[in-house]
C-alpha cells in the first residue's frame, strides 16, 4: 500500500512543482535564475525513490514541461527520463545521503539535462543557449535543491512510515 502512496506523493509533487514553476518561478519573470523544481524532483527520484512508477513520473514530468513551455513534445520528456535512468543506475555506486553528493548530483544533472536538450536541438535548429546560463541554472538548482531534498525526504519518510 505504501508503494501506491509513494507514487501518489511524487505525482502530486510533480504537479504542484510544475504549477509553481509556471506561476511564481517562471523564467519569464526570473530569467536564468529560476529554480527548475521539476528537475530537482527527478534527481530526487533517481537517487532515492524505490517506487516502481518513478520512471513514468519522470516521463510525465518532462511531458508537462514540454506542453506548458510550447516546446517540441519529447524534448523534456526524454531528457528527464534519461536523467532518471542514469541516476537510478548510479545511485547504487554513490553515497546519496551526503549533502555534497546531492549538491554535485544536482549540478551535474542540470548540465546533463541541458546538454541532452542542447545537442538534440542543435542537430536541426540554431537554438542558442549560453554556457553561462546553464552554469547559473546549475548553481540555482543546487542551492534550491538541497533544502528541497530535505523537505521531500521528510514527506517521503512520512508516507513510508
Amino acid at each position: 500500500m505504501n508503494r501506491v502512496y509513494d507514487i501518489l506523493l511524487f505525482a502530486f509533487l510533480s504537479f504542484i512543482f510544475i504549477i509553481v514553476q509556471s506561476t511564481f518561478f517562471s523564467p519569464k519573470n526570473l530569467g536564468v535564475f529560476y529554480p527548475d523544481l521539476n528537475l530537482i524532483l527527478v534527481v530526487f527520484l533517481g537517487l532515492f525513490s524505490e517506487a516502481r512508477g518513478s520512471a513514468i513520473i519522470a516521463l510525465v514530468n518532462g511531458f508537462m514541461m514540454d506542453v506548458l513551455s510550447g516546446n517540441v513534445i519529447g524534448l523534456y520528456s526524454l531528457s528527464r527520463l534519461s536523467l532518471y535512468l542514469l541516476l537510478r543506475g548510479l545511485s547504487t555506486h554513490i553515497y546519496a545521503r551526503s549533502r555534497l553528493t546531492q549538491a554535485v548530483a544536482l549540478f551535474l544533472s542540470t548540465l546533463f539535462s541541458w546538454g541532452f536538450i542542447w545537442i538534440g536541438l542543435k542537430i536541426r535548429t540554431d537554438f542558442r543557449i549560453s554556457f553561462g546560463d546553464i552554469m547559473a541554472q546549475g548553481l540555482v538548482n543546487t542551492l534550491t535543491g538541497i533544502p528541497l531534498f530535505w523537505i521531500i525526504h521528510k514527506l517521503y519518510a512520512k508516507v513510508q512510515g
Binding site: 519529447g74 526524454l78 534519461s82 536523467l83 535512468l85 537510478r88 543506475g89 542537430i123
Partner: peptide, 24 residues
C-alpha cells in the same frame, strides 16, 4: 538499468534526436 545507465542514456538520446527531427 542499474548495470548500464550510460548505455540506456545514449540509446534514449539517439531516440530523442530522431524523434525531435521527426517532430520538426
Amino acid at each position: 538499468l542499474r548495470r548500464h545507465p550510460i548505455l540506456i542514456s545514449i540509446v534514449l538520446f539517439f531516440f530523442a534526436t530522431q524523434f525531435i527531427s521527426f517532430r520538426l
